[in-house]
Amino acid sequence: MMLEIKNLHASVEGKEILRGIDLAVDASEVHAIMGPNGSGKSTLARVLAGQEAYEVTEGQILLNGKDLLDMDPEERAREGAFMAFQYPVEIPGVSNTYFLKAALNAVRKHRGQKEMDALEFLSLVRQKMKLVQMDESLLGRPVNEGFSGGEKKRNEIFHMAVLEPTLAVLDETDSGLDIDALRIVADGVNALRSKDRAFVVITHYQRLLNYIVPDKVHVLVDGRIVRSGGKELALELEAKGYTWIEQEVRGAAVSSAAPATVGA
């Protein structure tokens, strides 16, 4: 198993957001995680990436059998985890290309591979840029600075293509994209699908999943995976919205909690 999440509980500022997540993703698979706003989707992505504001109170995350929670964010990246940010950060003064070269070489060094020189890197970059139809002018610019929303998301996929992670987590990469940009991003992701790589695609809307067809779909409500299924589950959610499933989950919770309340 490439990614194993076991009974994951996580809080931010003392408030529990994830309340027992179990998820197993195998190499070559694409899993979609859907859910209403506030269900904990982005929290899950950030916990996977190692953002410090999120405190894991219980549970385990294993990446290729290694304890991810024991690692700093950079170690996770070097171990093959990648997160495409929902809101990529603008970093004035840091060149998009040179920074990526330093990142790639940090990853390669960790993997025991030879560091790339400027020429090798440039030819790699040219090739990967085509994947997301990125304009070469974006290479020389500072990271994400002055990029449009679509350019930022494409840049995330471009970073992913260069770093070649084993596990890629896409956090609402579709948000704010028009249909053309969405297609480009999805094509980029599809080109990177391989038997050695797994994807966790976090999205609110089913639309992206028309282009990145998932093997499994999970529905997150109130910090728990309440339903899992095939790609048809996404279509059902698209048609019916999230309300029915939320009501079903919360109704069940209320009725099961009711006797306890009475008993007290």
């Binding site: 964010p73 950079e74 940010f85 330093a102 990142a103």
Partner: peptide, 12 residues
């Protein structure tokens, strides 16, 4: 910004 760079593999 620090977190973004780290998440790409650059040390803290």
């Amino acid at each position: 910004a620090i977190f973004y760079l780290r998440s790409r593999g650059i040390g803290a």
